[in-house]
């Protein structure tokens, strides 16, 4: 039996596998000091959630770290809960924008295990609320008070919500109390589970262009706010602790100073890179500027960051470590 072609072709068929094996022996310096083993990290991993504002933070931080400080930056996409696990285990060094979506994990890692440390304010204020489009609010100003929402059920009805009004919900990983708010205020609304931020954005874009009425969970900073005009529906005012326990929530959302978090080891031994990220602080306008370059104009993240950095030298000079 002629075995040669069989053998060779099997080898070639899974040839890439062979490459993997030979590579194992060849080069093994893939990941180095991302945790920073003293003397300052030469490589930093930033965990970035899927929304554009956070991408803007990371892009600008990465641009300056790489261009000005010669630190290699690895940007990894992951949602908040996973990102905290990553910080805990040292797979990532920094989160630059946290909305407080996973309080339990925060408590576990920051308070109990002390593997994650707070990194201070990002400088951007986050605000969540219930919003309607301006064209609808202009015609129906009463809609802007939550107590009147039941009068508008017919306007917000869709085939999905049946005989109730439709409330466009948030992506599953986002902080929400909508379910409890609707129940506790006896609102005749049904939440449309959008399932992802992309789905919600696209739906809003579509409805806005068609000038149809809708009621949605919405937030700022959000790049799409540069393209559409939304008006907030007033909910009962937020007071400290009014959303605990979540089931009893009747109040609206808090306005948040978005937070940075670092891997504890990185914060201590990360040297200049860590100092830079601790200093990293910019305004909502700055972030929106970069975010709308990325999302609105479709620029690559690096290009948008470079353009912003070229125009705002005074802002980022202040972040550089003093030494």
């Amino acid at each position: 039996m002629s075995r040669a072609p069989i053998r060779t072709s099997l080898i070639a068929g899974v040839g890439v596998l062979g490459l993997a094996l030979s590579a194992c022996a060849a080069e093994t310096d893939g990941d180095s000091a991302s945790g920073g083993d003293g003397g300052g990290a030469k490589e930093v991993t930033i965990a970035v959630p899927s929304w554009v504002g956070a991408q803007a933070n990371a892009a600008v931080a990465a641009h300056i770290l790489e261009e000005e400080m010669d630190v290699k930056v690895d940007i990894k996409q992951m949602d908040e809960p996973v990102a905290f696990d990553a910080l805990h285990g040292g797979k990532a060094d920094a989160i630059l924008e946290d909305w407080g979506g996973v309080p339990k994990k925060e408590e576990l890692y920051v308070e109990d295990k002390k593997t994650v440390v707070e990194g201070g304010d990002l400088g951007v204020t986050g605000h969540i609320g219930w919003f309607v489009p301006k064209y609808f609010a202009d015609e129906n100003p009463e809609v802007l008070d939550y107590e009147n929402l039941n009068d508008f059920v017919d306007d917000f009805k869709t085939s999905e919500s049946g005989d109730k009004g439709q409330f466009i919900g948030a992506a599953p990983s986002y902080t929400t109390y909508d379910k409890h708010l609707i129940k506790n205020h006896d609102l005749d609304y049904k939440i449309l589970p959008t399932g992802s931020e992309a789905a919600q954005l696209k739906e809003i874009q579509r409805l806005y262009e068609a000038e149809e009425p809708f009621l949605t969970y919405w937030w700022d900073p959000q790049w799409m706010n540069a393209q559409i005009e939304m008006v907030e529906v007033e909910l009962p005012e937020y007071t400290e602790g009014c959303n605990e326990p979540a089931e009893k929530t009747e109040c609206g959302y808090d306005t948040l100073m978005l937070q940075k978090y670092f891997n504890a080891d990185f914060a201590e031994n990360g040297g200049e890179a860590a100092e830079f990220l601790k200093n990293f602080q910019w305004s909502t306008e700055d972030q929106n500027e970069v975010a709308s370059m990325i999302a609105g104009e479709g620029m690559a993240e690096e290009d948008a960051a470079a353009e912003w950095a070229a125009e705002h030298e005074d802002v980022w000079k202040a972040w550089l470590p003093k030494s």
Partner: peptide, 24 residues
């Protein structure tokens, strides 16, 4: 795979979705 932070092409798609950028 990119949902749990393993990078690659999935990452690009995931990020493009956040921008509603079908082309990317």
């Amino acid at each position: 795979a990119s949902v749990v932070g393993s990078g690659g092409l999935g990452d690009v798609i995931y990020r493009a979705l956040g921008k509603v950028n079908v082309g990317q």
